[in-house]
Structure formats: C-alpha cells, structure tokens
Amino acid sequence: MSPVLQLSSLSVRRGECPVVDRADLSVAAGEFVGLLGPNGAGKTTLMRAILGLLPSSGENSLRALRPEARARHAAFLPQEREIAWPMPAEDVVALGRMPHPAATPAQNRAAIERAIAEMGLEGLRHRPATELSGGEKARVLIARALAQEAPVLLADEPTAGLDPAAQISVMEVFAAHARAGGTVIASLHDLGLAARHCTRLVLMARGRIVADGAPRDVLSPENLAEVFHLRAHVDWRDEGPIFQPLSVIGR
C-alpha cells in the first residue's frame, strides 16, 4: 500500500545543532504509530516539521502541499489544550471544517456530527469549552481534529494530564480510527499504553530515530536501557502486553 506520509533524511536545525537528525519514516494507512523517546528527543519538533510549522531540510511528502491542502491531509493535536474563548464545545469541533471551504453545509454538519458521536460529546455540545474538565477538553479537541477528516492525525502527547480511564479511551479512539483506515501518529510517554494500543512504535533519541517496528521489537531491554535508562518488566500476554518500569539504570 502506498504510504500516506513519507520522510527521508528530514532534519531540523536550531543554529548549528540538529534537533531532528536525518529522520526516515514511511507510514501507511491503518497504522497507529507511537512516537517514543525521552524529553528533548525531538518528538514534538519532528511532528511540527512534518506539518510545515518549522523549516526543515530533506524530503517530506507533505511539504509540496499548499497549507490548506496540507490541512486536508494531516490534522494536528498540539499538546497544550488551548481554547482561548468560551465557545460552545460543538463550535470548537466545527473549527475543524476550516480547511474545507468547498464542502457543502450538509457535508460539514455530517462531519461534525460524526466527530461528536465518536467522542461521545452529545451531552457537552452546548457547554462552553473553557469550562470543561481536562479530559472533556481533550475529547472536544480530538473531535475537532477528527472533524478535519484528514487521512493522517498527528497528536502530541494526547494522554498527558488525563486520568487513567480517559487515557485508555483516547488510545482506543485512535486505535479504532486506524482500524477504520486512518493513520495516527502520537507522541507518548507512557510506554505501557504505547505497547498495548499502538500497531507500531518509533523510538527517538537525541534527534534520531533509533528504532522503528513492532512494539515487541522496539521495547527491547537494550533499547529501554540505552534510550530511557530504564529496567522494566514486560509480559507479552494474549490480552495485550503488560509493561512495568522497575528502576532507573545509573547514567
């Protein structure tokens, strides 16, 4: 299957120092990619470069697209759950239709309703989005990104600051989205969630992609020790892997 996103030798420099260093990545429809790595590994920078929010060198299949066409191909969920004004939740979701100026009102309405239903926002739709809890805000913002109806969804730490049930719900929504033919790339710090829900993991360290593949291969004891300085217990069971970090290995 042809990839929905293709990077080759993508680099982002801050001054002389590369923040993302010659990243190669090819992602196909139906994949749920977990982007892993310690703080400062370059995960956010890589995602922003993919979206053209930062100047970068190398090949990026999205770069050839004009901003509005790019927005129809890739949606972005920034880590900061920012909603500046007390707009009703449903109006926030509707913002996702902005890159579709040619769509009919009926098409827009249908996309918004699908996103609202998918995120279970029926009861919140008229509430001012600024007054919602962190988990509810996260759901509203994911619905906004889904309403954009882009084949690729990039999410920067979508589970940060959410309670355990909300974290799992977010991961399940993304996994379902990928099973339905969409593509999700999410940066994650919770390796257990990543191991359980992602179809593929990409591990970054100091700006470089150091491992890329099935969760079982990427979360090897060697990678965990080298990249995260962690010793962990991983139990690859039938009902999904169970991952528990045990201790920090002296740096």
Partner: peptide, 14 residues
C-alpha cells in the same frame, strides 16, 4: 477563529 486553538493548531489548519 482558528487562533482560538493556539498558533500551532491554527497554522496546521492552513
């Protein structure tokens, strides 16, 4: 309107 969601989100919406 798009800026309601922050600068990165607005830019990513075109």
């Amino acid at each position: 309107d798009a800026l309601t969601l922050g600068e990165d989100a607005a830019a990513s919406m075109g």
